[in-house]
Amino acid sequence: MAGAALRRLMAEYKQLTLNPPEGILAGPVDEENFFEWEALISGPESTCFDGGVFPAKLVFPPDYPLSPPKMKFSCDMFHPNVYPDGRVCISILHAPGDDPTGYESRSERWSPVQSVEKILLSVVSLLAEPNDESPACVDAAKMWRENKPEFERRAVRLVRYTLGLPPP
């Protein structure tokens, strides 16, 4: 019998393949190693990220689901809650106990009930509604708060870039 983490990841992979949620695609990079996934997230509709397809990498710890995975966008990203190097800062990816920003309540932290699907859906909604209270990328948060048209222009440029289109 393989390890609990592996079995759970396999179950989640199966679930995601059978009933893929809209706008989300995720799976292991290769079937030999279930602890590294690649995900494609489409930007939420009627937001400035609409139409974009954003690739991301998920790295699972050996004790998943007791510990949360790490998520990192592998494309350029400009968003208040994404670090400049692509790491996603969202409360459900933080284990209770570590709170990098000091703004998160216990109830929205990681728990084994969460899943890859829930994480990705949360990230989609995070794209739609940035949380500028605890910004990971201060520049983006500042622009989002003070100069939203510019932020949206930048997001649209990003979307076109991810689609391989020339900037408008």
């Binding site: 393989a2 390890g3 592996l6 396999m10 079937e31 030999e32 190693n33 279930f34 602890f35 050996p62």
Partner: peptide, 9 residues
Amino acid sequence: VDYMERSPV
């Protein structure tokens, strides 16, 4: 050996 637990085959 740690990887044993995570490897499918």
